[in-house]
Design a protein around this nucleic acid. Structure first.
Lengths: 238, 238
DNA sequence: TAGTGGTCTAGACCACCGA
DNA sequence: CGGTGGTCTAGACCACTAT
């Protein structure tokens, strides 16, 4: 499982940007120069630069060159597809997960709808409360196909579900469709979270898919409004 | 300004997916077959498929092929970088914009911070209320550099600011950094919007940049919570 | 005009999948 | 095994920007 050449070039350039070798508003060397110094063809360099551009590290300008963007502001992506554990690790917060429910059950009609399946099969129903700095901020309600994700335990759910799925089961999580809305808190929300006096709750619904395009997980992540933050980098498509 | 070949191939394939010629869960023809039928090289086909993949239309599977995803669910992107006018047009809602403020002023210290400028210059301060189905739902507060966007009028702000910037001024809007949070409504929010009894408001802050990486606009878009919806398609990056 | 990025090509080799 | 997508190359031509 060796990385591709353009990925390694991307990684190296990201390193140079993040540690300050390449500063904001500086121009990168030209594609031809990069091709020479990395001993790669120009198209390979361009694949690496494409990645940098998509992730908001650089802006390409025809006829001029590629300029480094100021990345200090964005940079912690709740955008994208990242697990709570990965996020908490990155932010260095005192985070704790409390598994308040874990059971196997037959899909409800509502779940069957979400998974778009013709027949109801068994799913794991996982409920987890996320505590940050001693406050219960997030309620995660996960539903996972037991056929694809067997052998769940409380211990796994406390640590990282995604680590188990990817590293133990060897599945590849590939993409997700997400929807953010704001709703009224339910009795369950009020019971399980430290909601204070808020009368709204931010709900992130996700449909998560493997690399063969099968959906294996539906999640509702319910956040106390004052602690919710979503950051995004978007390019205009025409 | 003719489109590139891979863009045209992308457009044609999107057409086939959206009108049902290519249905969800069907496999696309192989890259070699597509190359032949479009009279293009395989790399060019691959650029088109890369776009389809990024936009959530297909999933590529090594050794197997590219499968069409079910796009009926996502498909109206509040994600990305789209103006209110473009969105309203696409959704066919009865939408109306009321310009409640338009003035040129010297940047405040706060704005200078947002624009990361060494010296304060003049900006347009535009306030617009968006009405959907007779309800005042969104308050947009825009700040634009007058040096880059001269000659604003109420009429322009009522129609589409982006159309003016791109089509009349000939500037190219390229990317944005966005942040979604939830705050307490201000007196101004309560005054200008039909907030009902809600005690929170969804705030989308955007820094918007041109293709030469200069920031020209800062926007706060303030939404009544029950009408806010953000849809996203995200691929897992490793 | 020279240098930049944008596109396109034809061919090669590899890793993965299914029969 | 043959067919699929994944990567990489060397070279060509174009559009754009600076000077």
């Amino acid at each position: 499982m060796t990385k591709s050449k353009f990925q390694m070039i991307y990684d190296e350039l990201v390193g140079h940007i993040e540690n300050g070798d390449l500063k904001a508003n500086e121009l990168l060397p030209s594609e031809n120069e990069l091709a020479e110094s990395f001993k790669a063809s120009r198209e390979t360099i361009r694949k690496a630069l494409k990645l940098l551009s998509e992730h908001g590290y650089i802006q390409k300008m025809q006829g001029k060159g590629s300029v480094v963007l100021d990345v200090t502001k964005i940079n912690f992506p709740i955008s994208g597809l990242v697990s709570f554990r990965e996020l908490a690790d990155k932010m260095g917060k005192r985070a704790k997960t409390d598994v308040v429910g874990l059971e196997e059950q037959l899909m409800t009609a509502d779940m069957q709808e979400q998974f778009q399946m013709k027949e109801a099969t068994n799913v794991w129903n996982v409920k987890r409360v996320r505590e940050i700095d001693k406050e219960r901020i997030i309620l995660d309600k996960d539903y996972l196909l037991t056929s694809l994700v067997p052998g769940l335990t409380i211990n796994i759910c406390e640590k990282s579900l995604y680590a188990y799925i990817e590293q133990v089961l060897g599945l590849t999580i590939s993409f997700a469709k997400k929807e953010i809305t704001v709703e009224r808190p339910t009795e369950e929300d009020k019971e399980l979270l430290d909601l204070k006096e808020y009368d709204t709750i931010v709900v992130v619904k996700s449909h998560v898919y493997l690399d063969d395009a099968t959906m294996f997980q539906y999640t509702e992540s319910r956040h106390r409004p004052d602690k919710f933050r979503f950051v995004d980098f978007a390019r205009r498509t025409r």
